[in-house]
């Protein structure tokens, strides 16, 4: 059960929750939000669409991928098209029944995928320390790629450390701005592709009783941000979202809520509520009150 622990001026409470065992069967490897729906892709090649508490989720199996494809990432664009990386060298469009309807071969491998407006946002390979970590392009035209202002790839003492520490991921965008961060980072870059602002979460994460607490998910909303922080549960190696933070228009954390069981991913958010999928496969709505 989710419990209210933390109060920092605003109160976050559980408004409602509902069982949703079929929403994300397997490890979630992609999440995209567009046109009022949230899409989840799991490593079992299942694509689920969640459109709110009042509509039943729909789930389809992905078909038409190559046998050696290992899908990663999910992008939903303004035109409603849904894309994943079938492999680092192929961008695949999935149709409404989960069929791989289109395959765009990529000249340079990509290792992360998100959608922003009518373009795909991705991490290009090979990594180059000091260069932009992310880039954008039209889905069907890889050659239109250009750097995305914000995260900059970091150089490290070994290649494996460099690859690990430069794993970039992004949250839920709002008004053309996307929040992105490095997996082990404590800063979120909120960028429109041209310029960015940085949210320093060092102090926020330090409030969690785990010195390795990390950013698990971020959702932007009008004049608000929701931040899900992850930590390891005792007796478990698995990281899970253990605390949800709310930042209002004053750029300060003004509310927080401890989560038990932990949360896997943010499904949707606005300035007054945040909807999460928790580890018990329940959809949980958190609301903010003065």
């Amino acid at each position: 059960m989710v419990s209210l622990i933390f109060v920092l001026g605003l109160t976050l409470t559980i408004a409602r929750h509902t069982a949703a065992p079929a929403l994300a069967d397997g490890v979630i490897v992609g999440r995209a939000v567009c046109r009022g729906s949230t899409w989840l892709l799991t490593d079992r090649r299942l694509l689920t669409r969640w459109s709110g508490f009042d509509a039943a989720p729909t789930r389809v199996s992905i078909t038409g991928l190559r046998s050696d494809d290992r899908p990663w990432g999910l992008a939903c664009l303004d035109d409603g098209s849904v894309w994943t990386l079938g492999s680092p060298r192929a961008l695949v469009r999935l149709d409404g029944v989960g069929r791989a309807a289109e395959r765009v071969e990529l000249p340079l491998p990509r290792t992360a995928l998100f959608g922003i407006g009518d373009r795909v946002l991705f991490q290009q390979f090979p990594l180059v320390a000091g260069a932009a970590a992310l880039a954008v392009a039209a889905a069907r035209y890889p050659s239109t790629s250009r750097p995305w202002a914000g995260l900059v790839s970091r150089g490290e003492s070994s290649r494996e450390l460099e690859l690990t520490r430069n794993l970039a991921t992004c949250g839920i965008a709002f008004a053309g701005r996307m929040p992105c961060w490095f997996a082990d980072g404590r800063h979120v870059s909120v960028s429109d592709g041209i310029s960015d602002r940085v949210i320093d979460l060092s102090t926020t994460l330090a409030s969690i009783d785990d010195h390795e607490a990390t950013i698990h998910d971020v959702a932007l909303a009008p004049q608000a941000e929701w931040i899900l922080a992850a930590a390891r549960r005792p007796a478990s190696r698995q990281r899970t979202g253990v605390r949800l933070f709310y930042r209002g228009s004053d750029d300060e954390v003004t509310g927080a809520l401890d989560l038990s069981p932990g949360a896997r991913v943010i499904l949707s958010a606005d300035e007054r509520r945040c909807v999460l999928l928790d580890s018990d496969d329940r959809v949980v709505e958190v609301t903010v009150r003065p």
């Binding site: 491998p109 390979f125 997996a183």
Partner: peptide, 18 residues
């Protein structure tokens, strides 16, 4: 490059998979 892509896939599923 393929080695590093495989490593990245392995690492991200362990670290970023939700």
């Amino acid at each position: 490059i393929d080695c590093e892509l495989d490593f990245t896939d392995c690492a991200r599923r362990a670290i970023l998979g939700q």
